Simulated scan of single mutants.
Amino acid sequence: MSNDQYYGGQQYDPYANGQQNPADVTQTWEGQTWDTQYQPAVSYDQIQAAQAAQAQPQPQAPVGHGSQADAYPQPYPQPYEQQYASHGGSAAYYAEPVAEPVAEPAAAPAAPPAPAADAGPAYSSPTTSGNTRVTDAQRARAEGRSPIIDPGMQPAALTALLGLLLAGGASLGSYGLLLPLVLLQGLTAAGWFRLNGMWPARQGIALAFLGGLVADAALLAAGREHAAAAILGTLGVWVLLCLVLQLRSHADPDERMYGLMATIASAALTVVATGHLGAAPDAVVVGGIAVAAAVFARALPLPGPVSLVAALLASAGAGIAAGGFTGLGTSGALLGLGAGVCALVGLRAAAYDYPSRFVHMTAGVALPLTAAAPAVYLLGRALA
């Protein structure tokens, strides 16, 4: 007998009442897919949990196609929101989704402590590479202090010694005066460049020092009676030479102008110091002793105005005393006072803008005697 059944002459169809033929059903996957070769690792605790779940009574699945897969236990927790049965069953019996751990936000770095309200301005350490920094003079002005520091007793003692050497060399003659004068010119050239913050400046120092030597040689060749022409002629030539050399420089315009002014000033001071060689010997003796007394009195620990008056009185008194040993007599007081005033001006220039110890031992020693050279030369000729 065939599989077809007839009832009342009609073929019986068991799926005519709306039921679906399993042969005509095509199962489709509506969830996420995964690689079938991947086998997740299952721990021993997960296996025990799965066995305990199997031992519990399972809910009855509703009758119908695909209902036998709804009650399958899960061997391990499911990390996704929904997992689908392998035979198209519902996901209602699967475990609830496991929340993935959320990374904690990184802690913000601690803010640096705020500076105290009463803390002063921070100053950088001095550098030699040309970087911008706060200078000692700027710091002093910011703190309300004066940017002037006098050289002190030790440079004053060296100035007094050099002045006495000039006085002793002048009493011996022009060539006896030449050696301390050359030393004075070398200290002047080096100290002025360092006082202006230009160091090392070997070319500028050598150029200024060479100008002083040329002025000495020109004066010795022309004679003391032509001292003014020799000094002014050398000064004019050296200013022109400095100008030409600085124009050939490849530095920035500002640096070039700054270097030009420092070189011309240093050369001019070094050449002006030759005035000691052109002055009368008695005037050099009085001037050297007066400058020594003035700077020594200025270095004493006295109040400012008192120290200034004491230095001027000391220079005048030393001029009177030295004039008594020479032919100047009491007129030596005027020469001594003029030399003392110029010496204090040079000492003040060497004390400006927080100079270093090197400045005090060069410019602080030489500038008082160099600044006094014009007064010694002019007053010596006038009083003689």
Rank of each mutant, 00 (worst) to 15 (best):
G176M: 07
T263Y: 09
A322R: 04
S43W: 08
V345D: 06
Y6M: 03
I289S: 09
D150G: 11
A363Q: 06
Q83D: 11
P180C: 05
Q185P: 14
V102I: 14
A55G: 15
A71L: 00
S43K: 10
L243N: 09
P113G: 14
A316N: 05
V237Q: 00
L161Y: 06
R348G: 15
L308V: 04
A16H: 02
G236L: 10
S67Q: 15
A218P: 04
Q37D: 08
P77A: 14
Q10W: 08
L172D: 02
D136L: 15
V376I: 12
Q78L: 08
A382P: 04
L337S: 03
L235K: 02
A110S: 10
L383M: 11
H226N: 14
P147H: 05
T159M: 10
V214N: 04
L172S: 09
N196H: 08
N196R: 06
T326E: 07
A92F: 15
A290C: 03
E143G: 14
A137Y: 04
L232M: 13
V214L: 15
R256T: 10
L344P: 09
A322H: 03
P113I: 09
Y72W: 14
Y377C: 10
D150E: 13
A318S: 01
A92V: 15
P57D: 12
A382N: 01
P147W: 04
T135K: 05
V271K: 09
A107H: 01
P253I: 00
P368S: 06
S146P: 02
G152K: 07
A316V: 00
V98M: 06
A314E: 07
A111S: 10
A99Q: 05
L164F: 14
V284K: 02
V272T: 13
S356H: 08
R348I: 13
N3Y: 06
A229S: 12
V309W: 15
Q74S: 14
N3W: 01
L219D: 08
Q56P: 13
V365K: 03
L277T: 01
